[in-house]
């Protein structure tokens, strides 16, 4: 059967993608950002997942204000890098896993999570920056990627608790899939940042690090954090962190923290990164 064995959380700041694409990774400003992923690249190369389920948000690339899906699962065969105003990133096309994605869709909808299914969409930095951070610059991405886009642009996004429970439903779905597949789930975005108004540039290191602790050891408590706390403490865009709860819900209650990294700044944002493995997983 298929099995989700681990999760990867990381920020998906567009400037990180630009720094990579322009060969700036060794510059003093960017070197501390990329250094945090040295361990992670080796970890995932050793783990060799067959499929990544990548939870991220679209930033006015595939979805304008014409249609605003709360949860959109990519069931298509491929997803092209989006043109976000300066041409598409020079990264490989993302290949999906339509069979597993369709299976997840049927399973979680019957489990009462009413997803939107998307067969055609371009994927922006929200999805491609985490792939770059974890896999570098291969000719082709080394595994299939199923995109799960969450609306965190227009309030209200789904609650943290809803995200956490969707993660659990995704775990049940994957475990009911008959083919042997090793799956890793990514929860991306965050950490604290605010990109608007007179409070732009807000960063809350203490809150972010407490969230990393909670996510690892007490995810049920993290799932209960109300929206007002995210916005007040971590900035209007810090609310992206609800997406980290989808990935956490897809793991077992007990996990091993394999890697943690935190750095300020990456452009306007606090960069956070966490790798968790199921306690039962004997890599």
């Amino acid at each position: 059967m298929a099995k989700i064995v681990a999760s990867v959380n990381c920020s998906h700041v567009p400037a990180i993608g630009a720094a990579w694409d322009l060969g700036k990774t060794e510059q003093p400003y960017w070197q501390p950002v990329f250094k945090g992923f040295d361990y992670s690249k080796k970890w995932i190369a050793d783990l060799k997942p067959d499929v990544v389920i990548l939870v991220y948000n679209d930033h006015a690339s595939a979805f304008s204000l014409e249609v605003i899906p709360t949860f959109a699962l990519g069931t298509g065969a491929e997803f092209k890098p989006a043109d976000e105003g300066w041409g598409p990133r020079p990264v490989p096309t993302v290949h999906g896993h339509p069979k597993l994605a369709s299976h997840i869709a049927q399973s979680v909808i019957l489990d009462e999570f009413d997803l939107t299914l998307v067969n055609k969409m371009d994927v922006d930095h929200g999805l491609t920056v985490p792939l770059t951070l974890m896999f570098g610059q291969p000719e082709a991405w080394p595994c299939k990627v199923i995109p799960l886009a969450v609306n965190v642009v227009q309030y209200p996004p789904p609650t943290g608790n809803r995200c956490y429970n969707l993660g659990k439903a995704i775990r049940r779905a994957v475990e009911a899939y008959p083919e042997d597949l090793r799956v890793v789930i990514f929860g991306t975005g965050g950490m604290s940042h605010q990109l608007q108004g007179k409070r732009a540039g807000l960063i809350n290191k203490e809150w972010d690090n407490n969230f990393l602790d909670l996510l690892t050891h007490d995810p049920g408590k993290a799932a209960k954090i109300p929206f007002i706390e995210y916005v007040r403490e971590t900035g209007s865009e810090g609310i992206e962190m609800v997406m980290w709860l989808v990935s956490r819900g897809a793991l077992e209650d007990k996990v091993r923290e394999k890697h943690r990294y935190y750095h300020v700044p990456a452009s306007n944002t606090a960069l956070g990164h966490l790798i968790l493995e199921n306690e039962s997983f004997k890599g």
Partner: peptide, 14 residues
């Protein structure tokens, strides 16, 4: 300001 750790939440919550 960002290099120095960003805008503090202290005094900016309410």
């Amino acid at each position: 300001m960002m290099l120095d750790g960003g805008r503090s939440p202290e005094g900016n919550r309410s």
